[in-house]
Amino acid sequence: MREQFPLERELTQDICNRLGIEHPNNQGVDQYMSSDFVVDSKEKGRTRFALQVKSVEAFKSARTVEKLQVERTYWQEKHIPFLLVTENQIPATVFENINILYNHACGRLDQNELNELLIHLQLFQQQLPQYETLRLKDLCIHLDTVYTHEPGESLYQIKRLLALRHFHFDITKPFIELRCSDLTAENTDALQEGWRVSS
């Protein structure tokens, strides 16, 4: 599964022209559009599909509907199924967790940001096993106090680490109720190698 999968700009520009829709742009420069997820599956007859997650509220915006039309047409022309998912189609807890992670996913990180993230990754890898029964949010408060971080800094960093899949948890559990034992860490060596490749 790939997140924020970029769509070919030349094709989305062509689709916008055909549909009479203004292409997303920033100060007159056409931007790349993306689908939230592109999933490669072993399911027979549907080996790949694209997925866009939107709140029902988002459909009140005509501009959002236009962009979804462009995205749907893009995938139709690629002969790849396009699925649109709202909070009405998935459990509320899962939807809320996806929102938390989505809002903390970041784009390409520079070397300083990677180094900072690695420090927090190592800190959480050390602390989580020591506080298995403690709620994750309480551990974050504890770490902010012990390391004199700004209040909320540790919670922000663990959300970033989760969004970047450096830790994993059962997405059906409410984030606020997670205990330290609910998180499992990725292999640090593999992550560091991936970071070296990406920088």
Rank of each mutant, 00 (worst) to 15 (best):
Q4F: 04
Q4P: 02
Q4S: 13
P6S: 04
Q13N: 03
D14K: 15
D14P: 00
R18K: 14
R18E: 14
E22T: 12
G28S: 09
V29H: 10
V29R: 14
S34W: 04
D36P: 09
V38P: 08
V39T: 10
V39C: 11
V39N: 09
E43I: 15
G45W: 11
A50K: 05
K54H: 07
S55C: 05
S55F: 06
V56E: 13
F59N: 08
T64Q: 11
E66M: 10
L68G: 03
L68D: 04
Y74N: 04
W75I: 04
K78N: 07
K78T: 01
I80Y: 06
P81E: 10
F82Q: 07
F82C: 06
V85I: 14
T86R: 09
P91C: 09
F95M: 09
F95V: 04
N97T: 01
I98Y: 15
L101H: 06
L101Q: 05
C106Q: 11
D110E: 13
D110Q: 07
E113H: 11
N115P: 00
E116F: 06
L117M: 14
L117S: 14
L117K: 07
L121A: 07
Q122R: 14
Q122Y: 04
Q122L: 13
Q122I: 08
Q122M: 13
L123S: 06
Q125C: 10
Q127S: 06
D138Q: 11
C140A: 13
C140P: 01
C140S: 10
H142Q: 12
D144K: 08
V146A: 06
V146E: 12
Y147H: 13
T148V: 10
L155M: 11
L155A: 05
Y156P: 00
L162I: 01
L164A: 13
F169G: 05
D170R: 12
T172M: 05
T172P: 01
T172N: 14
F175T: 00
C180K: 04
D182Q: 03
A185T: 10
E186T: 12
D189W: 08
W195S: 06
W195M: 14
V197P: 00
S199F: 10
